[in-house]
Design a protein around this nucleic acid. Sequence first.
DNA 1: AAGACGAAAGTGGTTGA
DNA 2: TCAACAACTTTCGTCTT
Length: 302
Amino acid sequence: MQERVCPVCGSKEFFFDPRRGEVVCAKCGYVLQEDIIEEGPEWRAFDPEQRVRRARTGAPMTLMIHDKGLSTDIDWRDRDIHGNQIRGSYRTKLRRLRMWQRRMRINDAAERNLAFALSELDRMAAQMHLPRRVKEAAAALYRRAVMKKLIRGRSIEGMVSAALYAACRIEGIPRTLDEIAAVSKVTKKEIGRSYRFLARGLKLNLKPTSPVEYVDRFGDALNLSQRTKKRAKEILREAIRRGITSGKGPTGLAAAALYVASLLEGERKTQREVAEVAHVTEVTVRNRYKELVEKLRLDVQI
DNA sequence: AAGACGAAAGTGGTTGA
DNA sequence: TCAACAACTTTCGTCTT
């Protein structure tokens, strides 16, 4: 079980409110996790491999068909089941019904698109254990994209993934394209393309992700103390200030900073461990770490 | 035995002519 | 559209603890 720390007050004590289905910080009342009952999968995953294997994909069947397959088709011929001509006022009524049904179908196309998109969004957000606000931000982005007619001609899957990727960044808890791709049905490349398109279409300000934003998540995964994570952030900020981070991958930098910080704070982690949570190689951790130590004149002994 | 280090070759994506 | 390019990965041998 991963140790949780309140992002507001730093407290590690929480209680679970079963009535509301929320995990709440005992000190300041910050809601750490909402909708536990509804969002989580019914199985438990003890490691990432299991999570990948156990996760089922795909929307519920009923959402694939907007009306759960219960709609009626009204035949275009003005005849009853015996093949007899229908005449008079009943015929006009039939024609009116046909017209309404056609209108509803057109209206439904957009709804159906949205329903499918949102169910996919739900699935991905749940699998990634993302907080509700991220999911809602993604849904809002997607709706805006629909209104601006940006979805037409591209895959819904790709655009939903892109919206989720963007939402994570906007909300300050970025996920990598690889992480999104792991729960998506489309490739990383496709998500990247869709994201750029979405960002341009909605005029999102796409500042590159700062490595600092990965420190808390990676640090938690490594069970590092608040103090060490803070140290890592300081190191990164200094590195950014001196401009030795430009062009480098943010995850690799975050990993290296955490590695150095773990040494400095006496909470030593191996390069292997750090590399693993950041999904980079040891070599990358090593290279970044070497640069940091060299350029920032950090004295790392032991 | 495990971790750290570094060299060298390979890969995929961006950039600029 | 193509080639150059930097970042990152893979692989592997060596040194250190």
